[in-house]
Design a protein around this nucleic acid. Structure first.
Length: 428
RNA sequence: GGAGAGGUGGCAGAGUGGUUGAAUGCAACGGUCUUGAAAACCGUCGUACGUGCAAGCGUACCGAGAGUUCGAAUCUCUCCCUCUCCGCCA
């Protein structure tokens, strides 16, 4: 959520940011509601001040045994007016809040501006890393991850569709073990090498949590919702973990807070059928190790770099070719001010696949979720900055691992760092 | 699912419907004392919004919402949450 004062004072900047993000510009509507709200507020507060004052006077008069009927009658009318104005105010207030919830975060000034219209072509590749001996062109025929999954009986998309519907993969035997190895390896690495604290959060969360991180109201249709209890299945561990500190005041000395956690993630992906939807490329349930940071505002861009570097470490260990993209304004998510995507290479698709997204939300989520810290220097409260990054999503990563680690003999080698976790070195 | 108890400031804990934003204690912060520290003593010590160049002023907030009243932390109703016990269950 943006600060209404900031919008009031910088409408042009806000409008430009919204335009660059291809979101709906409601700034004028907001300013109008804000003006109306303040006008009503001044009027009603003056009346309330009067009521408070006179009511005290009534008390004094009655105590002294004097008659107060006249001013009581007058105050009765004032109270009636207050009641009406309060009702108007409440309605304007609600409208304003709703409008504000739909305003996206503004892109950081360093973010490349995309062309008008939803556009990812202005994303900038800032880095590419390839393991030793890697070639983009393979001499031997390459099987894609679906064929490999079938061949070794380690992945079963058809049975997943039978059990739940398409997009719910089943992992079998060595596939399941490899998946679990990957999760454990990544978690252990972040804990031991990067110093994160592990969280196992709830997978169903309430409305306030979804609003806090910015999924609601915009992404309503993309989420699984348990109607009976009004709970949402998490689309990412970002939601429960960031909301751990919702409505809390943290002390400066405990920042930065670095959490990591593994959870399944659930996404309805409404309306996305047909587009890159085969196998693991787009699923309704997948596994992800997530990293979440709560930091002081002045450190958040350094922390964003740390986040990307923590993801890269994992890929170096796994020896998976990847590239880092700096997203342009048109490709930035609703809540992000700046974001790097990390994409891993799929030799069968001959494509880069998004396996991680590292974002700085600045104080956008902190405002929505009311997460603040008390500064040492002046003891004042301020919003913290939140960041998160996938470290990483196993589905896309699994595609890259299976496809990149194929041997000419038609087997798949388990990446070295995972072997102690899997207990086997080869599939097939 | 059934029964009961409770929700007040960072915490603990008062609060006959009328200078109560809220006693008191602890914690925290500043100071005096001390070679230093502790103790003791003195002082400060909520947040948000609005308004003003500013000092300031105003309003709201005692789980949430509605009601009674000139006036509600205090009375009434509804809801939410937490805890305890019983039942069911992994």
């Amino acid at each position: 959520m943006l600060d209404i004062k900031f919008i009031r004072e910088n409408p042009k900047i806000v409008k430009q940011g919204i335009l660059n993000k291809n979101e709906k510009d409601t700034v004028d509507e907001i300013l109008e509601a804000d003006r109306e709200r303040r006008k009503l507020l001044v009027t009603v507060e003056e009346l309330k001040a009067k009521r408070n004052k006179v009511s005290q006077e009534v008390g004094r008069l009655k105590k002294a045994g004097e008659n107060a009927d006249d001013i009581v009658a007058e105050m009765k009318q004032v109270s009636e007016d207050i009641k009406q104005l309060d009702e108007q105010l409440r309605s304007v207030d609600e409208k304003l809040k709703e409008l504000l919830l739909w305003v996206p975060n503004l892109p950081h000034s360093s973010v490349p501006v995309g062309k008008v219209g939803k556009d990812e072509t202005s994303n900038v590749e800032v880095k590419q890393w390839l393991p030793e001996g890697f070639l983009f062109e393979n001499e031997e025929p390459i099987l894609d991850h679906i064929e490999l999954g079938k061949k070794f009986n380690i992945l079963d998309f058809e049975r997943g569709a039978k059990i739940s519907g398409s997009g719910f993969p089943v992992y079998i035997g060595k596939g399941a073990r490899l998946e679990r190895a990957l999760i454990n390896f990544m978690l252990d690495y972040h804990l031991d090498k990067h110093g994160y604290t592990e969280i196992i959060p709830p997978l169903l969360v309430n409305r306030d949590s979804m609003r806090g991180t910015g999924q609601l109201p915009k992404m309503q249709d993309d989420m699984y919702h348990v109607e009976k209890d009004d709970l949402y299945a998490i689309p990412t561990a970002e939601v429960p973990i960031t909301n751990m500190h919702r409505s809390e005041v943290l002390s400066e000395s405990e920042l930065p807070i670095n959490y990591t956690g593994y959870t399944p993630c659930f996404r309805r992906e409404a309306g996305s059928y047909g587009k890159e939807s085969k196998g693991f490329l787009r699923v309704h349930q997948f596994n992800k190790v997530e990293m979440v940071k709560f930091v002081k505002p002045e450190t958040s861009y350094d922390e964003l770099n740390n986040l990307v570097s923590d993801v890269e470490d994992i890929l170096h260990e796994l020896k998976i070719p990847y590239r880092v993209l700096e997203l342009c304004t048109g490709d930035l998510s609703f809540a992000a001010a700046k974001c790097y995507d990390i994409e891993t290479w799929s030799p069968a698709e001959k494509k880069w696949l998004e396996a991680s997204s590292c974002s700085n939300f600045e104080n956008f989520q902190a405002r929505r979720a009311n997460i603040r810290y008390r500064k040492d220097e002046d003891k004042k409260l301020d919003f913290i900055h939140t960041l998160n990054g996938s470290g990483l999503a196993t589905s896309r990563l699994m595609v890259s691992i299976l496809e990149n680690y194929q041997t000419p003999e038609g087997k798949v080698i388990v990446p070295k760092v995972l072997q102690s976790y899997t207990g086997f070195n080869i599939i097939g």
